[in-house]
Amino acid sequence: MSTPDPGRQPERTLLAWRRTTLGLIANGALLLASGHGTSDVRTGLGIVVLVLSLACWAVVSAVYRRTKGGAIQALGHQHLLRLAAGLVLVVGIFDLYAVVTR
């Protein structure tokens, strides 16, 4: 019995993760830029978002490399999904703070 061919699904999943983290990185950069010279809190939030986003990018890339793209389940693992959901929630709260305190 042969194993099913995942086709391009692992690459598409990796690209989806990268688009998500790239959006979070851009968001962190905007938070950092909005706080430049006016608010140490916004600058700090921007740095935190950038660091967390880059860490998410690194984790997803490491999982993909470790599984050599064949185990799509690894990229959809509960820990990665929770990390992404938590990061998006944290960034949303930081953005709300930045908008309210503008």
Rank of each mutant, 00 (worst) to 15 (best):
T101K: 10
R65Y: 04
G76C: 11
L32W: 03
W17E: 03
G46F: 00
Q78E: 12
S34P: 01
V100P: 09
Y64V: 04
G92Q: 09
L52R: 05
R65I: 06
F94L: 11
A71W: 03
G37Y: 01
L22Y: 08
G7Q: 09
T43W: 03
I47R: 05
A74T: 13
H79Q: 13
Y64E: 00
L75N: 04
S2L: 07
R12V: 08
I25L: 02
G7P: 01
V60F: 01
L31M: 06
S2V: 10
L75T: 07
I47Y: 03
V49M: 06
T43A: 09
N27C: 09
L89C: 14
I93M: 15
S39V: 07
V63D: 06
P10I: 00
A55F: 09
V90M: 14
I47T: 08
L32P: 00
L22A: 15
L22I: 01
S34E: 08
T43E: 07
G76S: 08
V63Q: 08
P6W: 02
A58S: 13
R8V: 13
A16I: 02
P4C: 10
C56G: 08
A84C: 14
V59Y: 03
A58C: 07
H77G: 14
Q78N: 12
T13A: 13
T20S: 14
I72H: 08
A62M: 12
L81C: 11
V59S: 10
I47K: 07
H77Q: 11
L89W: 10
W57F: 07
L14Q: 04
R8M: 12
S53E: 03
T67H: 07
L14C: 01
G70N: 11
W57H: 06
L52V: 04
L81S: 13
Y97R: 10
T21S: 04
G44R: 00
G70Q: 14
A74C: 08
T43P: 00
G86V: 13
I25G: 03
S61A: 14
V48T: 11
V60H: 03
A85P: 05
V91S: 15
T101R: 14
V51C: 06
L87S: 09
G46M: 01
G86P: 06
T20A: 14
L31Y: 04
L15A: 15
L31N: 04
V63Y: 05
A62F: 12
G23Q: 03
A84G: 15
G28F: 02
R18C: 04
A55I: 05
G28S: 05
A62I: 06
G37K: 04
T20C: 07
A26S: 09
